[in-house]
Design a protein around this nucleic acid. Sequence first.
DNA 1: TTGTTGTAGTTAACGCGTTAATTACATGCG
DNA 2: CGCATGTAATTAACGCGTTAACTACAACAA
Lengths: 142, 142
Amino acid sequence: MLPENTRRSLPMALLHAREAVMARFRPMLAAHDVTEQQWRVLRVLSEAGPVEATELADRASVLPPSLTRIIKALEGRKFITRNKAEVDGRRVVLTIAPAGSALIDALSPERRVIYDDIEQRFGHDKLEQLLDLLESLIDGES
Amino acid sequence: MLPENTRRSLPMALLHAREAVMARFRPMLAAHDVTEQQWRVLRVLSEAGPVEATELADRASVLPPSLTRIIKALEGRKFITRNKAEVDGRRVVLTIAPAGSALIDALSPERRVIYDDIEQRFGHDKLEQLLDLLESLIDGES
DNA sequence: TTGTTGTAGTTAACGCGTTAATTACATGCG
DNA sequence: CGCATGTAATTAACGCGTTAACTACAACAA
């Protein structure tokens, strides 16, 4: 059955839900002049160490063209360094720099507080249930 | 607790879930050279009749600056018409045009098939449950 | 009437998503 | 080796999201 109102439309509900959640994180990121995607890239580099561009794009859920722009921005601010792979001249290896690690360290506590608050307000069980359903939806459609 | 992997991160899960669902609709829209947002605007105009820009933006979940661009595109293709309100020179009234209605009619059956397929594969009950949780999340955060 | 405040819509600037084209390098076949 | 094919990354082009600034008009008070 086609959804009659946008509230019960799955694409709309997912859009609004994500927007509602991200609204909590955006001020924190904006205060440090990092975009959501730049933050994801930094986190991956922080957690996974030096990584090639393709894997980085995949892990951070960013498309290659976007990653190129993000790398340029982050490199310009000395948050990361960019080097060609020795074995394969096409590949690019990204590494987090001290300034990048410092930003991660500076924002992580705040991020934890926000995430915990969302979990507490929404409910731990409901959050788990929601994540299960989303995972199932993703697997079913992909 | 902070999510350790992106799969169990709420923002990521919502992003991927929406992407997985929209991937089903995108080819249909692309085949007719309409973007997702243009399609939402057309649907609102089709269902709600002539509407002022502010209400249209709200109903279609599009920001005012985006709506301005969308109106320009849709008007250029004669899908909608744009008129100033008589009572208030600031307001703009949008109306769907025959070509716009024709597009709606042409795509609606296909849209229904896709939506039904998603519902069937995912399960009716799970879909309802997911929509309930998303609605709750949205209300709780807003 | 005039000036202030408020509102609807637009424009601008910047970043990302998306698709397609392009460049640089690697691989493999004849 | 020389050339075709494949792959990693970049570039380009276009549209939307987001925020802020700006324009046009309305409402209202002095």
